[in-house]
Nucleic acid binder design. Structure first.
Lengths: 206, 206
DNA sequence: GTCTATACGCAGATAGAC
DNA sequence: GTCTATCTGCGTATAGAC
């Protein structure tokens, strides 16, 4: 694995993330990826074999950040801290991986036809862990009796929307692009909805 | 405009909504639409002229329901009633127009390249009206000081997710498909988040 | 390892018979 | 108004020179 290979593969993945995000899988031309990556088209095939395999490589590149975002849920015992940190982490993914997030969203929207089984399994496992924890908190009287799954869906949707529907949001806000202040406001609103809406209690201050 | 024409156009639109939703614009073959509609492929072209025009017709078919969903915001003066009804209306769109909703979402996700200007204008107008009303309520002390735009984004995202990410949700719930009970639970959770989270006050019972 | 030039298949669109 | 048969262009993929 030469240094040039690693470097070129990175360039291609970065370019591909963007083109796939903007156009969707079927509508993207490998020629456009090559152009953005400033490499000849056959190099794409030399490094990745096919458009399909390149696409899967892009999908896999977001998997780790996505799974890592749930770390707060494990780390913090305090429900308020855990949920606040989780919402922030999810919003940062939308901010920092806007293209990969979109590719992932598009993939899920169409029934995950290209998503490898092992990734699906890990995401499912994560879902079970998170909703179980929410239900635990409900059982311990640490929050109002809400359905953990549906609360999770609401958190996912309202954080991911800042990447997936970026176009709509920037237009509604009358901006060119979202800045850190917008993400702060988003975090404030979503956190309030969850913490106050579900009457989540802190372990330290009752 | 013969009766047969109207009937065939309906059949084609219905089939197209589904195929476009499942595969995305670029990946759908007009042949597949024709097959599902049980008509020969050239009829698609006879009635709609091109794949692109057919796609736009599908987009336009959801516009009215989408705009109509905001009626509660206008009809009800009471913030609690208005928001509760709005959330319910948005969820019903996800339930009753799952395919068209997905097509619309996919279109927005990619920057609305095919969405006619006049539809964009009407949706923008609606966005302004809704966020202005939310800000009014805040100004009148009828709800906590939340940013109207971001609250709106959260409501949109968490209701549309039941159509757009249907696959993920049914999998997480371990079901084959969502039933009315699931939508009721979704409504309950989202309504709680908004009403309790933003401390929305009812006009009648303070 | 890199890239120019080319093959090949698929799917959008249509000509023209009925 | 309907449909069979066909054209054509575009985009994935590769052969083969360097």
């Amino acid at each position: 694995m030469s240094r040039i290979r690693v470097k070129n593969e990175e360039k291609i993945i970065r370019a591909a993330s963007r083109i796939f995000a903007e156009n969707g899988y079927a509508a993207t031309k490998t020629a456009d990826i090559a152009e953005l990556a400033q490499l000849p088209k056959p190099n794409i095939y030399y490094y990745f074999g096919s458009k399909e395999k390149l696409y899967r490589a892009v999908l896999e590149s977001v998997t780790e950040p996505l799974l890592a975002a749930s770390a707060p849920f494990i780390e913090y015992r305090d429900p308020v801290k855990a949920l606040t940190a989780y919402i922030k982490a999810k919003l940062l993914i939308s901010r920092d991986y806007p293209y990969a997030s979109k590719v992932f969203a598009s993939e899920i929207m169409h029934g995950a036809p290209h998503l490898p089984e092992d990734i699906i399994a890990r995401l499912s496992e994560q879902t079970r862990t998170l909703s179980a924890k929410l239900n635990d908190w409900v059982g311990q009287g640490l929050m109002a009796p809400v359905n953990g799954h549906h609360l999770l869906f609401a958190i996912w949707a309202s954080t991911q929307t800042y990447a997936d529907f970026n176009w709509q949001i920037t237009m509604a806000l009358g901006k060119e692009e979202l800045d850190d202040g917008d993400f702060d406001q988003a975090a404030e609103v979503i956190t309030r909805l969850v913490i106050d809406g579900c009457r989540v209690k802190s372990l330290t201050e009752g």
